[in-house]
Design a protein around this nucleic acid. Structure first.
Lengths: 145, 145
DNA sequence: GGCTTACTGAAAATATTTATCAATAACAGG
DNA sequence: CCTGTTATTGATAAATATTTTCAGTAAGCC
């Protein structure tokens, strides 16, 4: 089911701002925050209120259409969420991010942590930071980080 | 080496605000953010500028004395960092957090992700969310989440 | 096409973080 | 222990980010 159908079925309207924002998010390669999204849309001539950006992101996030990505500087950005995945590896140089699968490999660790801490684990946040192939090549060629 | 010695050796002074803040952090059971720390200190009669709280946390974090903890509401808090650990499990009910070891179990996963994505992994962010033993008991007894 | 009501956008209020700079206090050296 | 140097603080202000409010607009049902 595409996001438009999903939104309708959940009882939400398919408004212009929502379409604009999702169109932008769908092709995003690196985490976007509300202000950046607003700026990008302004630049391409689409003028919509910053408030709508906040509201729309909050809605999409609550519906699971997008994921939060925690950046190393402490800021939070958003990226489209493929169903089932929710783990990202973010490039420390250009910030480009891709998803990876990972839940399976965590089972054993989760089990051990539950035993050790006596907590029950219900969710987890897992992200990697590193260098994307392009930036590896760039940096090897002698550029500074 | 205790944090005071560490701070001195790194060329920083052992000021009153720094002592106050670290004293508070050392016994923290749940993630604290700058505003909360400032409020808590005010309440116990210690009056220091909010700006100093920000500066001190930034310093302690850059020195690795404290860790950032990402909360599920998107806010960032701080907790003392034991050497070597840096992974926390946070209670979704009372927010109490404890550290766990975990790097070892990640080796294989890191390897696989590197192969799949062609990224080089340099750091990772891993946190669990769940219920602490106390809240499990509470909730089983019929309380609402 | 018209009606209902969710949704938007502008403005203002609130909250959070950073910058500036004179006054203060930590600590090294005597 | 006193003194000078300089890192550090705190007050103020500025910048940045987020939330609230509410009248006007438009999405989707009939």
């Amino acid at each position: 089911m595409d996001w438009q159908t999903f939104l309708s079925k959940a009882g939400y309207r398919l408004s212009e701002p929502r379409k604009r924002i999702m169109t932008l998010m769908e092709v995003a390669e690196r985490p976007l925050n509300p202000l950046t999204i607003h700026r990008l849309l302004c630049e391409q001539g689409v003028h919509l209120g910053l408030v709508s950006v906040y509201r729309t992101l909050e809605l999409f996030f609550s519906l699971g259409l997008i994921s939060q990505v925690f950046q190393q500087d402490g800021l939070v950005g958003y990226l489209p969420a493929s169903f089932g995945h929710h783990h990202f590896i973010v490039c420390q140089n250009c910030h480009k991010a891709v998803e990876f699968m990972g839940s399976e490999d965590m089972r054993e660790l989760v089990q051990r942590v539950q035993n050790e801490t006596r907590y029950v684990v219900r969710e987890h946040l897992l992200q990697f930071y590193g260098l994307c192939p392009e930036c590896q090549a760039l940096l090897e060629a002698g550029e500074t980080k």
